[in-house]
Amino acid sequence: MTQPIRLRIIIGDDDARKLVLPRGLPDSTEDLCQTIKTSFGLQEDIRLQYQDSDFGNEFLNLSEIGEIQDKASLKVIYLQSHAKDDARTPLPQEAQGPTECSFISSGETEPVTSPESAPSTRQWLWPSVFIIPHFRYDAELELEKANADYKTNATLLNPSPKLKSHILERIAEEIIKFKAYPSDNDLNDVAEALVKTHPCLKEQGSFNGCYGWKISLKYKMANLRTKLRGLGCAEVEINSLKNKATYKRSLAALNVKKPKRAEVNYCPQHPKGETADSLEQERIAMLSEVKKRNNDHIVTEKMEKTFSYRRQEVLQAEPMVADFKSRWPALFTVKEVCISSHQLYICPIIQPEK
C-alpha cells in the first residue's frame, strides 16, 4: 500500500503549512503544483523549490518529483507577480496606487467574510483541475488493488452499487463546495479527473471512458439539491415553485436562477443566528448610520453582515435600481461596490490608476 507523504509547504514569509498526501506523491511536479494550489486556494501560477542536502539544504528549483522525500520542505514561488512573495499578503500601500479601493490588494485570494459568516459561504472559485477527494478506507483499498490490476493486465473494475454510490456521494460533496449547479463542462472535467486518478474506473465502450460517470454525477447533484432544498439551502430553495412569481411557475424549469460564470457566493445563507427580520432591522439602522461622518467602519460592518439578505432581495424581488438605491444607499459608493463584489466574486476588484 502506498505510504502517505507529509510535506511542509512554505506559502510565504511567516506562512508555512502542512500538506498530507495519503496516496503518496503525484506523477509529476506539475500535478504536485496543482494539488498545492487547490489545497491552499492559490490563484497564481507557481513553481516549487526543494532543499538539496548536497548544497547545505539550500532551496533549489524542483524539476524531478523523485527529489521529494517524506517530511520535505517545499517553497512556493509565484510566477505572475515579482512584486510580492506571498499570494495572501496585501501589497504595500505605496504599491497599490492612490485609489479608494486600495484597501483590497490584488494579491489577496481570501474572501471578505466575518467569523459569523454562514458555514455554506463559498471561499474558492471552481478549480482549473478538479482534485478527486479521498474515499472511505475500504473503498480506497479496493480502488488501489483495482488500479494495480489495471496497470498490470488492463483489467477494468466493475464497481459494486455500494462502491459506486459512495464514490458519487463523496464527489458530489466536493462539487457542492464550489457550485450547486455545475455545468456539463464542469461535470465532464470531474468525470475525466476521476478516471485519471483511478484508471480502473474507465468505462468500456464509452467514447471518452467516463461519459457514464458524468451522467451519474448529474443525477447525483440533482438529488443532492433536492435534499438541500428540504434543509432550507437558500441557493437551491430560491428555485422552488413557492419562491417563483406566479407568471413564471409555468416555465419553472426554464427560469432556474444560478450563478453566472464568475459568481461564487451567488445566494449565500444568512449569518449564524440571523433571520430576515433581524437583518431588515440592521438595514433600517444603517440608513441613519450612513448619514453620519467618519462612520465608515460601522457602515462596512453592517453591509457585510447584510450581504446575504441583500443578495436574496435582488434575486427574489428583482427590484428596480431606484428602489434598491433608496433601500441600500451605502452600496452605491466605490468602497462598498469593491467590498460587495469581493464577497460575490471572491476575486478583489482594483480601481485602475488614472
Rank of each mutant, 00 (worst) to 15 (best):
P92K: 07
K37A: 04
Q80T: 13
L74P: 05
D45G: 05
E30N: 13
P22E: 09
V20F: 11
I65Q: 00
F59P: 04
A87W: 01
F103P: 08
G56V: 07
E110M: 14
T29Q: 06
L32G: 07
Q43N: 10
Q80D: 12
I46R: 00
S63F: 11
G41M: 08
L74Y: 01
L74E: 00
Q96H: 09
T38P: 00
Q80N: 14
E94W: 14
Y78P: 08
L42P: 00
G107Y: 14
I104A: 15
C33K: 09
K71C: 11
Y50F: 15
L19T: 05
K84Q: 10
H82N: 12
A72F: 05
A118M: 04
L125N: 02
E94F: 15
K18H: 11
D85I: 12
A72G: 05
T35N: 01
R47G: 11
L19K: 01
V112K: 00
S73W: 06
K18D: 13
A72V: 06
T38L: 09
S102V: 11
G97P: 15
S53H: 07
D85Q: 07
S63Q: 06
S39I: 01
P26T: 06
C101H: 03
S63D: 04
S53T: 06
F55E: 04
S73L: 08
L25Q: 02
P90N: 08
F40A: 10
F103Q: 06
F40N: 04
D86I: 10
P111M: 12
E108Y: 14
H82V: 14
D52H: 08
F55W: 09
P90T: 09
K71W: 03
S117K: 04
L91E: 03
T38W: 00
E116G: 10
P119M: 09
G24K: 06
S28D: 13
S39Y: 01
V76Y: 06
K75A: 12
I68D: 03
N57F: 15
V76S: 05
D70T: 05
K75S: 09
E64K: 10
T109A: 15
A118W: 00
G107E: 13
R23P: 02
S73K: 07
F59H: 02
A95S: 15
S106M: 11
G66M: 04
H82S: 15
T121G: 02
F40Q: 07
L21G: 08
G107S: 14
L32T: 05
E108A: 15
E44H: 02
L91Q: 02
L48C: 06
S102R: 11
L79F: 05
D45N: 10
T121K: 01
S63A: 09
V20G: 09
T121F: 13
L74C: 07
F59Q: 01
S114P: 07
D70Y: 02
T113W: 10
P98L: 15
K84S: 13
S53R: 06
A87G: 04
D52V: 05
D86A: 09
N57I: 01
G56S: 12
R47K: 03
K71V: 12
E58L: 12
R122I: 12
R122L: 14
T38G: 02
R122S: 07
L79Q: 00
P119N: 02
E116Y: 11
R88T: 08
Q96N: 12
A95G: 09
A87M: 03
L74W: 01
L62V: 06
Q80S: 14
T89I: 09
E67H: 09
E30Q: 11
P22F: 12
G56K: 05
E44D: 11
S28A: 13
A87R: 00
